[in-house]
């Protein structure tokens, strides 16, 4: 009797989880599926996951005056070729890499010493400063977007990489996360480093950083995911120059370039944009979960 109810509750849990997983996965499924199919299959919602992969002819290609042989291909090839040809997708990806990596690098450069000072040094007003950090965590980005934009515009920085990077260089979340982690590092280790002759900055980079790799990895994923996927901010500060666009922004431009029902190439582009993150997550999955839970450490 008891066992049956236990089984029931286990099944209940799994049903809830499966439904949740489906809700999350479904858009991804559609995105990938659409990126494989021909326009007609997309319209009629037929062809299963892969589509029939029948040869199709690209009408715009014909209009451009090329031969029929040249313009006939598999839908999957058509979609992905269009994604890379119609828009500078590689350029967007490269921009995304430049922006997210420079944001992360500078965030680490700033957050680690700050977190170290807040966690391990005693100075007047430390608690107030930490209170401010917590307070800043509560400020939504959108609330300060306008003043930020105005400031950047005053310095003539709109439509530059700097505009994409500078506002995010100080991550209060990063400071908070690393501070909490540094708190768990024993004082003795830092004192030992001081006795060995290290300066405070050397302690940050040579002692704290190596012992904080799991936390840093978690922060890296938060930061990279957030800024890789960010649409709002690039949309505000990048107004004209296509060479500066990040992937999500590029995707938006892509949509307006193609005629309205070209979902295949668009989904192909979206797949390409999402892929690096998914791959990175799968590779770092274990460390990532380790870093987020921050338990079982040491």
């Amino acid at each position: 009797m008891k066992q049956r109810t236990k089984l029931g509750s286990e099944a209940g849990k799994h049903i809830v989880l499966i439904v949740g997983a489906l809700v999350v996965i479904l858009p991804f499924y559609l995105m990938i599926s659409f990126s494989f199919k021909s326009p007609s299959e997309i319209q009629s919602i037929s062809g299963g996951f892969f589509g029939a992969q029948e040869m199709m002819t690209d009408h715009r290609c014909l209009k451009a005056g090329r031969s029929e042989v040249e313009c006939t291909m598999l839908p999957i090839v058509y979609n992905y070729r269009a994604a890379f040809e119609e828009a500078p997708l590689l350029r967007y990806l490269l921009n995304g890499v430049i922006v997210t990596l420079s944001i992360f690098a500078i965030q680490v450069l700033i957050a680690l010493p700050c977190a170290y000072a807040l966690a391990k040094l005693k100075f007047w007003g430390r608690d107030v400063v930490f209170g401010l950090v917590i307070f800043c965590l509560l400020i939504p980005v959108h609330a300060i977007a306008l003043p930020l934009y105005l400031m950047l515009a005053k310095f003539g920085l709109t439509n530059t990489f700097a505009a994409l990077v500078i506002p995010w260089t100080i991550s209060v979340f990063g400071i908070f996360l690393m501070r909490q982690f540094f708190k768990t590092i024993p004082d003795d280790l830092i004192n030992a480093a001081r006795m060995d002759g290290m300066s405070e900055f050397s302690i940050v980079w040579k002692v704290m950083l190596p012992s904080a790799i799991p936390a840093l990895l978690a922060f890296a994923i938060f930061s990279v995911v957030a800024h890789w996927n960010d649409y709002y901010w690039p949309r505000i500060v990048i107004t004209g120059d296509r060479d500066l666009m990040t992937p999500p922004l590029g995707l938006r431009m892509f949509k307006s370039d193609m005629d309205g029902n070209e979902y295949g190439p668009m989904m192909a582009a979206a797949t390409v944009i999402v892929a690096p993150l998914v791959v990175a997550f799968l590779l770092a999955q274990r460390r990532f979960i380790e870093g987020i839970t921050l338990t079982g450490m040491k």
Binding site: P186, D188, L189, N191, A192, A193, M195, M198
Partner: peptide, 16 residues
């Protein structure tokens, strides 16, 4: 501390 030229052994050993 680093310039006093003393060495310390800690209870927790505090190895890197």
């Amino acid at each position: 501390a680093s310039e006093r030229d003393l060495a310390m052994v800690f209870q927790s050993y505090a190895l890197y």
